[in-house]
Amino acid sequence: MTLSIFYQFFLLGCTSFGGPAAHLGFFKKHFVDNLGWLSNERYAAMISLSQILPGPGSSQVGFAIGLQRAGILGGIAAFLGFTLPSFLIMLLLAMTASQLESSLLGVISGLKLFAVVIVADAVLTMAKSFCKTIPLKLVAFVSTMVLLLLPTLYAQLLVLAAAASVACVYRFSPIPAHSTNTTNNRVNLPVLSVFSLLFIITFFGLPNELFAQFYQAGALVFGGGHVVLPLLQNTVPELDQDSFLTAYAAAQAVPGPMFSIATYLGASIASEHIWLFALIATVAIFLPGLLLMWAFHNNWQSLSTLPRFASVTCALNAAVVGLLAAALYSPIWQSAVFSITHMVIVTGGFVVFKYLKPPIWMMLLLFSIVGVLL
């Protein structure tokens, strides 16, 4: 089971360009629609939980999928599979300091266009599932507008908090009941204690300062990879501005989670044992978010069966649709579509993907070829 989970996530880790929103689209298409590992409702609950926890959202959702599928070993297998490709690529880039070839840049350009298609499909299908009533459609619409006008971390948190607050007063139509595991529905206190203890002692000195710096960044950042850059600049003073910008550009260009920027930065700090420094930085920045997801995973699932909490879940799911819709425009559309030709390609690709339903590998190959030709 764990090998199968690792293999499925490794494939996605090799091909998932476009950032967290695109990754969530890939996950939904692969694990919900194609493999049927979990329901739309359960998947949306995982996204909702990842949105209110610090850490890398798509990696946390992937970890939760593996966790539900095969326990903690499944969660670890999912994380390793999804992260390993970007870790190896970023380590290689840091060690060689080489520039990407023009042909590879073309492939990446094409895959970014495919990311637009994937996220658009995810927004549409999730809107159909979670915005069936007028109040929920209004929540999604307002969330989208707010985040388009105020594309900041604080606006995102405000939208989620507002949606949950309204749901406590106004009872939204609950999501249809789905099976939950109620045998262990409490917060995993030992795991939460490990997270808290590690976080506290990072401020009082650890044998490894590198681990402390990146653990603090992973524990404090909300909003994913785009937000982690300024936080890392404050917590890792050893690196200059050029190193950070180079690492950020590399993280944008490779598949997988943007938190793999830690791999590049860890390797850049090292004077020797480069791979070890890269590994420590990578584990440290991901660990807080994964521990929190593990701690609250079962609790969130069981709470969703309570009437008032089900109402909150409905509102949060609708708000998540708004978050994805806003992310579809910025940064995904803005970072991929620069001409009328790109718009035509995205539109045609969406029609093909939506109605002909070809396998993802075929679409990846098609968009890669298109990117090289362009």
Score class of each variant (00 low, 15 high):
Leu24Ala: 03
Ser39Ala: 01
Phe350Tyr: 10
Ala267Lys: 08
Gln216Pro: 07
Lys354Pro: 04
Thr202Ile: 00
Val166Trp: 13
Leu206Gly: 01
Leu88Tyr: 12
Ser243Arg: 09
Asn317Ser: 04
Val107Glu: 01
Ala262Pro: 07
Val312Tyr: 03
Trp275Val: 13
Phe286Ala: 10
Phe17Ile: 10
Val346Asn: 08
Ala22Asn: 08
Tyr355Ala: 05
Leu153Tyr: 05
Asn188Thr: 02
Leu88Met: 07
Gly66Met: 15
Ser330Met: 04
Ala78Tyr: 05
Gly225Lys: 01
Phe87Pro: 14
Gly66Cys: 14
Met46Phe: 14
Gly13Asp: 05
Asp242Val: 13
Ser86Ile: 00
Ile280Leu: 10
Gly19Arg: 03
Leu303Met: 11
Pro359Cys: 03
Gln334Trp: 11
Met95Gln: 15
Ala140Tyr: 02
Ala284Leu: 10
Leu245Glu: 13
Gln8Tyr: 09
Phe338Ser: 12
Ser173Tyr: 11
Gly25His: 01
Trp275Leu: 06
Phe63Glu: 09
Phe9Val: 00
Trp333His: 10
Val321Ser: 06
Leu292Ala: 03
Ser179Phe: 08
Asn185Pro: 15
Phe27Tyr: 14
Leu229Lys: 13
Leu149Tyr: 10
Leu158Pro: 03
Phe222Cys: 02
Ile52Lys: 14
Pro358Met: 04
Val372His: 07
Met145His: 02
Ser271His: 09
Leu220Glu: 00
Phe222Asn: 02
Thr152Phe: 01
Val236Arg: 00
Leu138Val: 11
Ala167Val: 11
Ala251Val: 05
Phe141Lys: 12
Gly25Ala: 04
Ile65Gln: 06
Val228Pro: 02
Leu364Cys: 10
Met126Gly: 01
Lys137Gly: 13
Ser268Phe: 08
Thr15Ala: 11
Leu290Ser: 10
Val146Cys: 03
Leu366Phe: 14
Thr125Gly: 07
Pro56Ser: 05
Ile175Arg: 12
Ala127Thr: 14
Thr182Asn: 11
Leu323Trp: 09
Leu92Cys: 15
Leu210Trp: 00
Asn188Met: 04
Leu157Val: 04
Asp33Arg: 13
Lys354His: 11
Leu92Ser: 15
Ala161Ser: 13
Ala262Glu: 04
Phe367Trp: 12
Ala140Lys: 03
Pro190Leu: 10
Pro190Gln: 08
Val370Met: 15
Leu303Arg: 12
Lys132Gly: 04
Ser109Cys: 08
Leu364Lys: 10
Tyr215Leu: 09
Ser143Leu: 07
Ile175Leu: 15
Gly348Leu: 05
Leu364Ala: 11
Ile108Arg: 06
Gly75Asp: 12
Leu12Cys: 13
Leu67Val: 09
Phe9Arg: 13
Val254Arg: 12
Ser109Lys: 15
Thr182Gly: 15
Leu80Pro: 06
Lys29Leu: 09
Ala44Thr: 09
Ala21Pro: 10
Ser196Val: 04
Leu35Ser: 02
Ala127Ile: 04
Ala64Ile: 14
